[in-house]
């Protein structure tokens, strides 16, 4: 059975919705009733059937519409996709990873035929049929990273590994939570995380870097991160902050359920074989409050997490302007009963 791809928008009239099945598979990021940074990295192994972790690279009902939104962002601002000159080989590595993973997990939608360097890629949802020579830039309409990530949900950062550090030397970033690839490209792990509050002092990044530089081929890892977004907008870039920032002042008790979205990033980490670089896909999942509270446990827990969040984190995540309104609205769904451990809806 194939995926029923929705036609929807992430801007203007914001017609994005989750189907009831997709609400249940939402990667809720809180395993307890409070939140603080931790090195919450775990092996990226297959999860339960139907979950976002069933396949190494998840494709869902929003795929076609998300790719249309990415094309709009890139047409407006080509600086969202950049690759320093030494990263082309890593781009080919990424193309291989994404094509083989998609073709294996979703054979009804994607297929890949390889005859030595002669590759034939079919992407049925996007209507693409491409024959090309692996490694030959002249046989694809874009560079390898841009070509395949225009067909893959989520942002992608490719990190070069040298001198015991990771360097953000290539990426495509159109669905980001408020950071600029154009500004951060070329930075090392500590530099591009520099603006994050509290975590440096806790030694989080030192430990995370040690872990990530040792991620090995065939053993990817993952972690969840989260923030909140007003309206189901994928492109919450700093570039356009002056355009979407005013949305944060529009939250009222009446519209919380439709306007406020929990935004979860499934970040995974993969060693790339030819370049020895690390690719870091950041896959974004959105859920509106009205959809989220269909799980009583998630509603109770989110209320407690947002209510008790340290001030620095609330500021960093941009919640300040509407936090009180949101907490008051969520309180209606929290009768104070305990929640079971773990992420699941109940």
């Amino acid at each position: 059975m194939g995926i029923n791809f929705r036609t929807e928008t992430f801007r203007d009239d914001f017609s994005f919705r989750n189907s009831p099945e997709h609400i249940r598979r939402f990667p809720f990021p809180f395993h307890e009733d409070s939140y603080m940074y931790a090195v919450n990295i775990e092996p990226h192994v297959a999860g339960p059937a139907g979950s976002v972790l069933e396949h190494p690279i998840d494709v869902d009902e929003h795929y076609v519409s998300e790719m249309a939104d990415r094309a709009l962002v890139l047409a407006e601002d080509p600086l969202r996709c950049q690759s320093l000159p030494h990263m082309t080989l890593a781009g080919w590595d990424l193309l291989e990873l994404l094509m083989t993973a998609k073709a294996e997990s979703y054979p009804e939608h994607f297929s890949l035929t390889r005859d030595g360097d002669r590759w034939h890629w079919i992407n049925r949802p996007l209507g693409i049929d491409q024959k090309f020579l692996f490694g030959d830039l002249t046989t694809l309409p874009y560079g390898p990273m841009e070509y395949i990530t225009r067909q893959s949900q989520g942002d992608f950062c490719i990190l070069d590994q040298r001198d015991g550090n990771l360097w953000m030397d290539a990426g495509i970033v159109t669905t980001q939570a408020d950071w600029s690839l154009d500004f951060d490209i070329g930075m090392n792990f500590f530099e591009w995380h520099a603006p994050v509050p509290l975590a440096h002092e806790k030694g989080i990044f030192t430990r995370a870097l040690k872990f990530l530089t040792n991620v090995q081929q065939g053993k990817p890892a993952r972690r969840l991160n989260w923030t909140m977004t007003i309206n189901p907008r994928l492109d919450t870039s700093p570039e356009n902050y002056h355009k979407w920032g005013p949305d944060r002042a529009t939250v009222t008790p009446e519209n919380v359920g439709q306007k406020v979205h929990l935004r979860v990033e499934l970040q995974s980490f993969w060693r790339l074989p030819r370049s020895n670089a690390l690719v870091f896909p950041i896959r974004c999942y959105l859920i509106k409050m009205d959809e989220l509270v269909t799980s009583p446990k998630w509603a109770r827990r989110l209320h407690r997490v947002i209510r008790d969040l340290p001030e620095e984190l609330a500021t960093y995540k941009g919640l300040t302007r509407y936090r009180a309104t949101l907490v008051e609205w969520l309180a209606r769904y929290d009768d104070g009963t305990p929640t079971s451990p773990g992420f699941g809806p109940e």
Binding site: D160, R162, Q216, Q217, G218, N276
Partner: peptide
């Protein structure tokens, strides 16, 4: 074991 590279080329 799977290949592990601790002596990688600096492609820059």
């Amino acid at each position: 074991s799977y290949p592990v590279n601790l002596f990688s080329l600096d492609l820059r």
